[in-house]
Simulated scan of single mutants.
Amino acid sequence: MPKHEFTVDMTCEGCSSAVTRVLNKLGGVQFEIDLPSKKVSIESEHSVDTLLETLRKTGKTVTLLSPS
């Protein structure tokens, strides 16, 4: 599965919980959240646009770092 890295403007556990919640609703994703560095790594067959749109539902600023 393709892996993508995003920065998400998370400042607390509540923020990372919001990211977890929206990604779990999307389904078909494996992800890791690194709260101190504000990074989210996602393995998914979903398009980058879909992942960006989903992460933005948290109301946080989201930036694509790199597809790997």
Score class of each variant (00 low, 15 high):
M1H: 03
M1R: 05
P2A: 03
P2Q: 10
H4M: 12
H4T: 13
H4W: 02
E5F: 06
E5K: 14
F6P: 00
T7C: 00
T7P: 00
T7L: 02
V8F: 07
V8S: 04
D9M: 01
M10I: 04
M10V: 03
M10S: 10
T11H: 11
C12L: 01
C12S: 08
E13F: 04
E13M: 06
C15V: 00
C15F: 00
S16T: 15
S16Q: 13
A18K: 03
V19S: 10
V19M: 11
R21S: 02
R21T: 02
V22W: 12
L23M: 01
N24V: 12
N24S: 15
K25M: 05
L26S: 09
L26M: 11
G27Y: 09
G27T: 15
V29D: 08
V29A: 02
Q30F: 09
Q30G: 06
F31Q: 02
E32N: 13
D34R: 04
L35I: 10
L35C: 05
P36I: 14
P36K: 14
P36S: 09
S37E: 11
S37Q: 11
K38V: 11
K39T: 12
V40Q: 05
V40N: 06
I42T: 10
I42R: 07
I42L: 09
E43F: 00
S44A: 15
S44C: 10
S44T: 11
E45C: 07
H46R: 14
D49N: 12
T50S: 12
L51K: 03
L51P: 13
L52Y: 05
E53D: 15
T54G: 08
T54V: 14
T54R: 07
T54D: 06
L55E: 10
L55H: 11
K57Y: 07
K57F: 11
G59A: 13
K60C: 06
T61L: 06
V62I: 10
V62K: 04
T63W: 11
T63C: 11
T63H: 13
L64T: 09
L64P: 05
L65Y: 08
S66N: 14
P67F: 10
S68R: 13
S68W: 13
S68E: 15
